[in-house]
Nucleic acid binder design. Structure first.
Length: 273
DNA sequence: TCCCAGGCTTGGT
DNA sequence: ACCAAGCATGGG
């Protein structure tokens, strides 16, 4: 059990931010997370987050949660004149850009296209259940995210149970390309954002938006700014003259997350009222 | 029954 | 280079 005290670290906000899909609430402030083949449980406390794991796993999770970065700085850099972004950044001040596994992000965000967040979670979980390696730690069993080979071995027949729809053939083609080395994931990890994105666009089912999500969440390219239907609407409404990307050079991605989360939560609150 | 969900591929100009 | 269809599935 290790406690992380940080005012810019909210498990609940990260869970709802739409960047990770295998973090799930077990109880009110108690979460489970499966990532990078590992399992951890987390408890949100008033002044930080408790990680239910032992010392030798901590380096991995500190890196995963990007805990060496000061996230208060990002919000502080927003000009006072931008009321909307100030508000969004304050509302989502516990969000961090996770350092997730590249392959996992590639498949996950291919599955995300024309899909809702609830069902994205279902698809990912189902995929892991069907062909992810079964593991266990401290009496908990879970399924890791499947490798390209495991996905190929499952094939169209095996994946049918996952109900991925037309996306099944996309992830099969992409897994084939990765397995055949037509795209070199190891090499992509060493590339700067524009080149990495160009490489990712070669994959089947990966377009502009999905490539940017993979860059931001799987490569930690903080300048990637995925534009989906929600972000498009917000930008058209609040930034008719265009979003000031140059004000946030090198870290536009976190601003995108603040906007996305703020917009998403507003919808949720509207539904409840 | 129709519409939408963190879009992309394909096949027409 | 640009533009529409078409795409599987589940939930409201």
């Amino acid at each position: 059990m290790i406690k992380i005290q940080n005012p810019n670290f909210s498990i609940r906000q990260i869970c709802d931010s739409g960047q990770c899909f295998r973090m799930t609430p077990l109880d009110k402030a108690h979460y489970r997370l499966i990532a990078g083949g590992r399992y951890v449980e987390l408890i949100q406390e008033a002044d930080g987050v408790m990680l239910l794991t032992d010392e030798n796993e901590m380096d991995f999770w500190k890196y995963y949660f990007d805990l060496d970065t000061d996230y208060s700085w990002f919000a502080a850099s927003i000009p006072e004149t931008d009321i909307y972004l100030r508000k969004a950044a304050d509302f989502g001040k516990g969000i961090r850009i996770l350092r997730q596994d590249l392959w996992e992000m590639i498949i996950t965000f291919i599955l995300s296209q024309r899909n809702n967040i609830r069902r994205i979670r279902q698809c990912v979980e189902s995929l892991c259940l069907v062909c992810g390696e079964k593991k266990q730690t401290a009496g908990k069993t879970y399924h890791a995210f499947p490798s390209a080979r495991a996905i190929l071995e499952a094939g169209e027949e095996g994946l049918a149970a996952c109900r991925l729809g037309y996306r099944t053939k996309y992830i099969l083609k992409t897994a084939r390309m990765a397995e055949d080395g037509l795209v070199d994931l190891g090499a992509i990890k060493g590339m700067a954002y524009p080149k990495a994105k160009t490489e990712l666009l070669k994959l089947c089912g990966v377009g502009e938006k999905v490539a940017d999500c993979i860059c931001l969440f799987g490569l930690h390219c903080m300048d990637a700014f995925p534009v989906d239907t929600h972000i498009r609407q917000v930008l058209d409404c609040h930034y008719p003259e265009g979003f000031p990307f140059s004000d946030y050079s090198g870290y536009g991605g976190i601003m995108q997350q603040y906007i996305f989360y703020y917009d998403l939560m507003k919808d949720k609150i509207d539904q409840e009222n």
